[in-house]
């Protein structure tokens, strides 16, 4: 099998606090890996490290064969990260937000409308400012912009948060179809039962260590 994420003894620091205190993680292509652990265990930091956003202080790591220590910027365009924030411009409408994201990754208008239809934010919602959306609707927008990005690895931090039951089903179907077309998913979720049903493997991290 094809290893897409390979971390060994990774330490990552927030200010002077070790958010990750030596994490090992290996993920194969096509997996849906669920990260488990209490609040503050380092799940968010781990996802940010895998996205090439957070530098690693010690240890070694490769994502898609790219070295995290020397070349983490190169990883970014090939992964998609959904963090706690949605990355939306609150003064832009849903449509304007997605069009902007599409233009940064050279996506076509039809890809945008497909993504919006998939996350059911087309129609009336398309013209609404992001600041007037509910939390769940904002989450849908963020997921739609992730679809537009055609990522090879989907890194999702609490993707179910704020979504209604239908939205969660749609998200799960979306992730399964993404994996079906060759993507890999790593997610952190407190929606234990739902996430367990989705995941092909579970990894527990705690106190920034282990795995």
């Amino acid at each position: 099998m094809d290893t897409v994420i390979e971390l060994s003894g990774v330490v990552a620091v927030l200010g002077q606090f070790p958010a990750l205190a030596g994490v090992d993680l290996t993920v194969q292509r096509g997996e849906i890996v669920l990260l488990q652990g209490p609040n503050g265990a380092g799940k968010t930091s781990l996802l940010r490290v895998c996205a090439g956003l957070m530098p690693i202080e010690r240890g070694t790591g490769h994502v898609l064969g790219i070295d995290l220590a020397t070349n983490r910027e190169a990883i970014r365009s090939r992964v998609g990260l959904l963090g706690h924030t949605n990355g939306l411009y609150l003064d832009l409408t849903v449509m304007q937000n997605l069009q902007f994201w599409a233009s940064t990754v050279a996506a076509t208008a039809s890809e945008v409308s497909t993504a919006m239809a998939t996350m059911r934010i087309d129609g009336r919602l398309a013209g609404v400012k992001a600041s007037q959306l509910s939390a769940g609707q904002r989450r849908r927008c963020a997921l739609a912009s992730l679809i537009v990005r055609r990522a090879e690895i989907w890194l999702l931090d609490e993707p179910h948060a704020g979504l209604d039951a239908a939205g969660r089903d749609e998200l799960d179907a979306l992730l399964r179809s993404a994996v079906g077309s060759g993507a890999t998913v790593v997610l952190a979720s407190h929606e234990r039962d739902r996430a367990l049903g989705l995941a092909t493997r579970t990894v527990t991290i705690d106190g920034g260590g282990a795995a």
Binding site: A21, D206, G209
Partner: peptide
């Protein structure tokens, strides 16, 4: 701090 976190985890 790293050691402390590891111990915490253990």
């Amino acid at each position: 701090a790293i050691t402390a976190r590891r111990n915490e985890a253990g």
